[in-house]
Design a protein around this nucleic acid. Structure first.
Length: 411
RNA sequence: GCGGGUGUAGCUCAGUUGGUUAGAGCGCCAGGUUGUGGUCUUGGAUGUCGUCGGUUCGAACCCGAUCACUCGCCCCA
């Protein structure tokens, strides 16, 4: 501990930051409520198996990014690296299969032990949604378009691109997997080291390799679309048509793959070029197999998550609302407190300077962005009044104390 | 986990080939105005030069290690 630094990859959110942060979260929840979502709050840690089993044993998140601790009792727990697994677990634990269909919103910190850089922290925040129980393209259309409307509500509609792909159903996926391996295997020695490893563990991931040599090989690889079953193809077509009808622009990216194993059918990603290497701002997909695989009743689901820090960086400053009124007493401190209490009870925010001469208190009122100052001077008090100064215009008038609340509310 | 860059006041940054008391702007504090802010003006305080160690008569400056930040890779929100 050199000096008093925060732990690597963690950050304090000072009021200016947290206001932006809160704006993103609140915008998300407000919008999502219009679609019928309720908020779920799950613990920020779970038994390690909850993540290990659902995310896929070979995923990067599980193999090297989890914050895992062993308890005295010998149990292993992990700080959540993402939200879906915990929600799925809560769904099973609480027997929520009785309540389908179900729309759940969550927000809060996530933890991944990665090397920090811009837009990537070890503790970061996400807002996310899970829509459980409907295996119909309509659910996909609603969920994806809701993501777009959320970004629009933040003023980011034109800064962001939606990429869309389908991973097909299980049959399609298996057929594609085989086709891909059959295509890639002869090129094995020409692939990068990492892609060779992926070829064995998770061949789909070879598709989005950034290695130039791999890109050339992959360019001619068979596409998922070639292997789709008729029903999987139809599912995807309906989604595309639905998004078009609703006016959500997108491009189909056949190479788009999700990092986590539980996805099928729809995969999508909203990206921006404004954040350097971390372009993904909101992403998700369909995960029909997940809950069954965890030991719950087979339940289809689709969802997305968005990075609050990344979005905060894009939205810029959020003006503080609710400018206060400042009270500046001239040697009448107890009366000032009583007056402040009365005004606050009436719904007015009040800034009460606690020390200093008048000049200093006026300066502090200005810094607090007060809209007006109530000056409690000896002369006015004797008449049962106070001076109210408008800090924007600089004009001031004397107002009777019993009319003060009314006067300040009127502005 | 791998590679590049950076680290001087609360913030943004200067600091000449190593040389004695380390600077600027903004911000902060106090005065000009003992009942009036935002402008102006005068003055003041800023600091383990990221940390530890080494070279040297002498290190903010050179070397090593370490920590943090940052950019990219990997991966992802």
């Amino acid at each position: 501990m050199a000096g008093l630094q925060p732990v690597r990859g963690t950050h304090d959110l000072l009021p200016d930051d947290s206001r932006r942060h809160r704006h993103v979260e609140d915008t998300a929840f407000q919008l999502v409520r219009r679609y019928g979502y309720g908020e779920i709050v799950t613990p920020i840690f779970e038994f390690t198996e909850v993540f290990a089993r659902t995310l896929g044993e070979t995923s990067d998140v599980v193999t090297k990014e989890m914050y895992t601790f062993s308890m005295k009792e010998g149990e292993s727990i992990t700080l959540r690296p993402e939200g879906t697994a915990g929600v799925a677990r809560a769904f099973i634990s609480n027997g929520l299969a009785q309540s389908l269909p179900l729309k759940l919103f969550y927000r809060g910190p996530m933890f991944r032990h990665e090397r920090p850089q811009k837009g990537r922290q070890r503790q970061f925040h996400q807002v996310g949604v899970e829509f459980l129980g409907v295996a119909d393209p309509l659910a996909d259309i609603e969920t994806v378009s809701m993501g777009f409307r959320f970004l629009e509500a933040l003023g980011l509609g034109d800064k962001v691109t939606l990429e869309l792909n389908t991973l097909g159903d299980q049959e399609s996926r298996e057929a594609y997997r085989n086709a891909l391996i059959a295509y890639l295997d002869p090129f094995r020695s020409g692939l990068s080291e990492e892609s060779r490893a992926r070829l064995d563990k998770n061949p789909l991931r070879v598709l989005d390799s950034k290695d130039e040599g791999d890109k050339k090989i992959v360019a001619a690889a068979p596409l998922m679309t070639d292997c789709l079953t008729p029903s999987a193809k139809d599912y995807f077509d309906q989604l595309c048509q639905g998004l078009t009808d609703i006016g959500v622009p997108f491009t189909v990216n056949p190479r788009l793959v999700r990092g986590l194993d539980y996805y099928c059918h729809t995969a999508f990603e909203f990206t921006t070029t404004a954040l350097g290497a971390q372009g993904t701002v909101l992403a998700g997909g369909r995960y029909d197999g997940l809950i069954g695989q965890m030991g719950g009743p087979a339940t289809p689901g689709i969802g997305w998550a968005a990075g609050v820090e990344r979005l905060s960086m894009l939205v810029g400053d959020i003006a503080a609302t609710d400018r206060p009124v400042a009270i500046v007493p001239m040697g009448n401190a107890p009366q000032a407190m009583v007056l402040a209490d009365r005004l606050r009870a009436a719904g007015i925010s009040v800034e009460l300077g606690f020390s200093g001469n008048m000049k200093k208190r006026m300066a502090r009122a200005d810094k607090a962005d007060a809209r007006a100052v109530v000056i409690l001077g000896e002369d006015e008090m004797a008449r049962g009044a106070a001076t109210v100064r408008d800090l924007d215009s600089g004009s001031q008038t004397e107002v009777a104390l019993d009319r003060l609340t009314e006067h300040l509310l009127a502005r």
